[in-house]
């Protein structure tokens, strides 16, 4: 079937088998391999993307659901348009060593951005609760939590300017 959607701000039309997960479509057909697949039980969160602005697990989403929708993946997460900068959340992860092997990182970032967008003044408890669907084996989460709080503050500071 043919589906049309907005992918990272660009109109996209693809021919796809209905029995295709969005994560597979992105990785295999569209060559966007930043979205990772870390499990087969929809538990790890490495594949989180934004569908119409909301965080979803692209490994638990069928491609037909994209038709007419807006999708943002890690490859589309950027700073101010045209600035060549990273998103404030990405900058915060680098600044606070919020990643080690990098495999869970795209999903963490997409979840974090959604979390910070939804709630401007995140507490540590909010962040820990908000990350319950994203598993990291490297960091012990400490620097991720610190990064998300810093990234959220930077996102809202940038908005306030």
């Amino acid at each position: 079937m043919q589906i049309s959607f907005t992918l990272n701000r660009r109109p996209t039309t693809v021919e796809v088998e209905p029995a295709t997960l969005v994560a597979e479509l992105l990785r295999e057909q569209l060559h966007l391999t930043g979205t990772h697949i870390g499990c087969d039980t929809s538990q790890c969160g490495a594949c989180v993307v934004h569908l119409n602005g909301l965080p979803v697990k692209s490994c638990t989403l069928l491609a037909p659901a994209l038709d007419g929708a807006t999708l943002l993946t890690i490859e589309g997460l950027t700073g101010a348009p045209g600035s060549n900068q990273m998103h404030p959340m990405q900058e915060a992860f680098r600044e606070h060593h919020g990643l080690q092997c990098g495999f869970c990182t795209p999903g963490m970032l997409m979840t974090a951005v959604a979390l910070a967008t939804e709630k401007p003044d995140l507490t540590e408890a909010d962040v820990r609760h908000g990350l319950e669907g994203n598993i990291c084996r490297c960091t012990g989460y400490q620097n991720i939590v610190i990064s998300v709080m810093a990234g959220a503050a930077a996102m809202h500071a940038a908005k306030g300017e």
Binding site: G45, V48, L51, V56, K57, L61, L115, E132, G133
Partner: peptide, 9 residues
Amino acid sequence: IGDPAVRSR
């Protein structure tokens, strides 16, 4: 229920 991504869908 679940986690934020599950609650979205």
